[in-house]
Write a protein that binds this DNA or RNA. Structure first.
Lengths: 244, 244
DNA sequence: GCGACAAATCTTGCATACAAGACGAGTAAG
DNA sequence: CTTACTCGTCTTGTATGCAAGATTTGTCGC
């Protein structure tokens, strides 16, 4: 859940370590996942790493470019829209099939909202990203359907990658309020309304994306050098050297 | 789509060959998938077969029993209910987000219904199973969401496995009529009603299952010997030898 | 200075080899 | 006749080795 080091993770923990890192926004989209490096990190042979990659590939988490390497997926604008679409369908469908909120469910959701609030107050953006994704997974867990939980977890991972690529600025408070409204509707037992609010919420988040932004191939290098993020001006003058 | 022989399938076609075989009910749940046999059949090394298995495992299609082998999943009664639940959520959510049926969509769906009718008339049960599953995938395709199509395809595969395990008798005509009603609602543009009908339809199919039936470990041998299917009586007297 | 070319290096793709464990047949003892 | 045990065979688990291709770096010619 929190910080799982390579060593303590069990046999097939490579998958979950990577997914978990994505869910907590510690791996950027497009990150190269070298078989050799992962093999040394987890102290296994390349074979096991490859098997983990195959599973992650089937889950839509990583990509392989033949003879070039494995990469964390970089969803295109189209794919991003598809992901949000799928989430709207599933989450709204989920809420609409629920008919009551158990007492423990109420407790869990409110505890989660409190955590979100705390993270906002602390300004812990990484933790916030993680929590914002987890909220939707919590709802699926409440519904008790393990299959949908898994599906939503993977979709959430992709969502986080998308937001790292296209999110211009993150309105944490707005998202948090969206979650609060959904929970409020659930507490009132008005699940169709909760479903509508969830759709609206996902719409809002999607609208907050700048899907016209081209992925910046220099992003990681830029970040390593502590340079400011890409702008229209910087991308056009990036080709020639700066003149003093 | 139809019969794809191992040879003509591309590099990673092992996955799709197996899924396709499940979708057309040519592989039973619990079937052992020997790495060596598959390697020989597809004329590749065990490595590639294993990689395919890893992907299928991530998709919930196969299971591995350590050091014993790979098996096509045998969903338990609980898992079966979970699968149907997930399908209700996704398919109802899908239909509810649609707002119009294009002309080509109408054509596709009606062509599909005609195929179902023909298969019923011909009594081609295997083809019918395939078509019954495909119907729901068609709808997802109409919505144009590739992610949901993939998810529904895998869920449909599991559904077919479930029906092979638990379906006492298959009311093809009833299912076909259910599909017709859904399409009718869609043609009228009443998608909430189509969603409700889809839920109802899946309920019907699920009700048609006998989820109390224990999976029969002798099923494949029984079938090979052309013995009648399992009954309560036969299962209780199976343990001791028959005395003349 | 600049562009093209070539070799070196690093990557994955795939097959094979060996080890560990499970299963079943056969056997011996009771 | 039944039961327990052991050995042989077959399965997957994992590592390693080699080949093919892509990228990058270094060099040469202009």
């Amino acid at each position: 859940m929190q910080d799982l080091s390579p060593q303590q993770t069990a046999q097939n923990g490579i998958d979950e370590a990577i997914v978990s890192s994505i869910l907590s926004a510690r791996i950027r989209p497009g990150t190269r996942l070298s078989e050799n490096q992962l093999a040394t990190l987890f102290d296994v042979s390349r074979t096991r790493v490859r098997e983990a990659m195959m599973r992650l590939e089937a889950r839509g988490i990583v990509n392989v470019s033949p003879r070039r390497g494995w990469f964390v997926v970089e969803p295109s604008a189209d794919e991003a829209m598809t992901v949000y679409d799928a989430r709207r369908v599933i989450e709204a469908g989920l809420l609409r099939t629920m008919d009551r909120l158990t007492e423990t469910g109420r407790t869990i959701l409110n505890a989660h909202l409190a955590e979100e609030k705390a993270a906002i107050a602390a300004g812990d953006r990484q933790r916030l990203t993680c929590l914002m994704g987890d909220f939707h997974i919590r709802i699926a867990e409440l519904a008790g359907n393990a299959i949908l939980v898994d599906i939503l977890r993977d979709l959430t991972a992709r969502t986080i990658l998308i937001s790292m690529l296209y999110q211009s600025d993150f309105h944490a408070m707005q998202s948090h309020l969206g979650h609060c409204h959904i929970v409020a509707a659930m507490e009132l037992g008005d699940f169709p309304k909760a479903a509508a609010l969830a759709v609206e919420h996902l719409d809002e988040v999607e609208t907050g994306l700048d899907l016209t932004r081209r992925p910046d191939p220099l992003a990681d290098l830029r970040r390593s050098l502590s340079l400011p993020p890409q702008t229209a001006a910087s991308s056009s003058q990036a080709s020639r050297k700066a003149k003093p």
